[in-house]
Design a protein around this nucleic acid. Structure first.
Length: 517
RNA sequence: GCAGCCGUAGCUCAGUUGGUUAGAGCACCAGAUUGUGGAUCUGGGGGUCGGCGGUUCGAAUCCACCCGGCUGUACCA
């Protein structure tokens, strides 16, 4: 069918979405399998939910009429109810647990990998459909459950080939920040909206640096394109208090920056318990903060008892994480090795996953809070990290292609089909060439498919009751030494004949020589 | 969402002050080689110059709007 060019359909993908090829799928499956092994070993069981949920079950508000798809992809069911594509795996899990609460063993320990969707501006490494790999424990209030999450995340990192020392699980607590708010409110009340602004400012520490954060805590900040961001509106002494909580003090020199990292001995201490002591002394918390310190201390003790030292699980008060539903400890898996960015600068790879305690999420469906903790790995981000460190899990060669049976004589396709079937019955990946092209093109096809071998049986071989087997890998190697085409043609490198009856045996043997069977 | 930069073949890019039929390299297809993936040579296919309007005798080139990409920023449950 020929269509007029002017109305021909354009093949194109909406922005922020991507197709995946065989090599990437295989590598990603290997990675997921390693993570799955770790989760299973900890006693978690698989559980999945669908891509679509009622919008209200996902935890936010109904889409508004003007912009129904802001952030989340939404549409109306035929009964006028709003449905949405899930944007994480935690809210659907909470829905599932609440729905089957009485039937589930508690604590309920489950894991799942799945696609999630966010209708946001995509960028390099940021898609509108991406995969997360979650594990959650619902019904356990003990910090032991949180500690276990951190340990499991650390194990998962090592299982996929991130060396110890190349990652760290950073831990803080939403309650620490709440304690800070209590102290600040002692001077002047801080409303929810203003507090949200403070949290957002803190969250930008890694990107904007201490002085950028200070600006956002107070009046506001102008970025390099001249755009102005309104600040949280704290008074200078309040903002100073926040900065000191984050581990910064006024730069004595005041040369270029107002704030510099606090380099007092306690702050450089790589010991979770001393870090907590110092935090208690310098920050000055209200009752909620005091509780957070107890939680974190317990978590640190569990980690130490499990043999996970500060090179793997480290208390770090600058971790903020998702601002909405976390209620206690929060964690972040950070890769600490450096990679070149687009500008050629060397930067740490950064976060590949995170999580925390969300005691209120299941409770939205019930009368009471249900304690829960979990974490999520950003699969594609971890995947690109593994490529950066050349983990064997993702750099391993792609699966080889099928043995291709060439169609030399169109009258005899049944014979070729039978050969392919024989090879398959023997467990060998094989196919008969299904296109229309001649032999040369068939060879090119086999080459492109990554075939280890092709099977050739034209008139000559048939007459002798033989088949030719050509080793494409060895052939390519030999070809580099051949300059003229005449020689190349007559040499027929890496090719040999076997009796027709010995086809399967000979193919097995040839694959073995290649180390592929 | 806001701001800046950018859109020419599948890819990387040329294209003069606005002036014939818009080019190159790589990739792709075919032939040289009635039956051999490489190399070489020859030939071929592929473009509504992101889209739609406007200015002009004439637009890839100038203008307006739209779409897409990149960067920064905002948002990120």
């Amino acid at each position: 069918m020929k269509t007029d060019k002017s109305n021909r359909l354009k093949p194109r993908l909406p922005r922020g979405l991507a197709d995946r090829g065989g090599a990437e799928i295989a590598a990603s499956e290997r990675m997921l399998a390693k993570i799955r092994e770790v989760y299973e070993r900890y006693g978690f069981e698989p559980m999945e939910t669908p891509f679509i949920e009622y919008t209200d079950a996902l935890g936010k508000f109904l889409p508004d009429q003007d912009r129904p798809n802001e952030g989340v992809f939404s549409f109306k069911d035929d009964d006028e109810q709003w449905l949405s594509l899930r944007y994480d795996l935690t809210a659907p899990l909470a829905r599932h647990v609440a729905e089957h609460f009485d039937a589930l063993p508690k604590p309920f320990r489950s894991y799942r990998a799945g696609w999630v969707f966010r209708n946001e501006k995509p960028g390099p490494g940021r898609f509108r459909q991406f995969m997360q790999f979650d594990a959650d424990t619902v019904g356990a209030a003990s910090p032991a459950a949180d500690a276990e999450m951190c340990m499991m995340m650390a194990d998962a990192m090592e299982a996929v080939g991130v060396a110890r020392g190349d990652y760290v699980i950073k831990v803080s607590s939403r309650k620490l920040l709440e304690g800070l708010r209590e102290v600040l409110s002692g001077q002047s009340a801080i409303g929810d909206a203003q507090w949200l602004g403070v949290l957002r400012a803190i969250d930008k520490l890694d990107r904007l640096g201490p002085n950028g954060v200070f600006q956002l805590l107070t009046g506001g900040r102008k970025d390099e394109s001249g755009d102005f961001t309104k600040g949280a509106g704290l008074a200078a002494d309040g903002a100073d208090r926040v900065m000191r909580f984050l581990g910064f003090c006024v730069d004595a020199a005041q040369a270029r920056a107002f704030y510099a990292p606090d380099t007092s001995p306690g702050d450089l201490e790589r010991d979770n318990f001393r870090r907590l002591e110092r935090l208690e002394k310098t920050a000055g918390f209200g009752p909620t903060g005091a509780q957070a310190l107890l939680d974190l201390k317990a978590l640190a003790q569990f980690a130490r008892a499990g043999g996970y030292d500060e090179s793997r699980i480290l208390i770090d008060r600058s971790v903020v994480r998702g601002l909405e539903y976390y209620t206690g400890p929060v964690f972040e898996a950070e890769l600490t090795f450096k990679v070149p960015n687009e500008k050629g600068e060397s930067v740490v790879f950064g976060s590949v996953g995170g999580g925390g305690r969300y005691d209120g999420l299941v409770g939205r469906f019930r009368g009471e809070d249900v304690p829960a903790t979990g974490f999520s790995i950003g699969v594609s981000r971890l995947f690109s990290a593994l490529k950066a460190v050349k983990s064997p899990i993702v750099t391993g060669l792609a699966e080889h292609g099928p043995v291709v049976v060439l169609v030399m004589d169109r009258e005899r396709v049944e014979d070729y089909q039978r050969m392919a079937s024989e090879l398959r019955s023997a467990g060998i990946k094989a196919e008969m060439y299904l296109g229309q092209a001649g032999m040369k093109a068939q060879m090119k096809y086999a080459d492109k498919r990554g075939s280890p071998l092709v099977i050739i049986q034209g008139e000559n071989e048939k007459a002798k009751g033989e088949v030719e087997i050509k080793d494409l890998i060895e052939g390519a190697r030999q070809a580099t030494a051949i300059a003229s085409h005449e020689e190349y043609k007559s040499a027929r490198p890496a090719q040999f004949a076997v009796p027709e009856a010995k086809l399967v045996e000979a193919v097995h043997e040839a694959l073995r020589r290649q180390g592929k069977a």
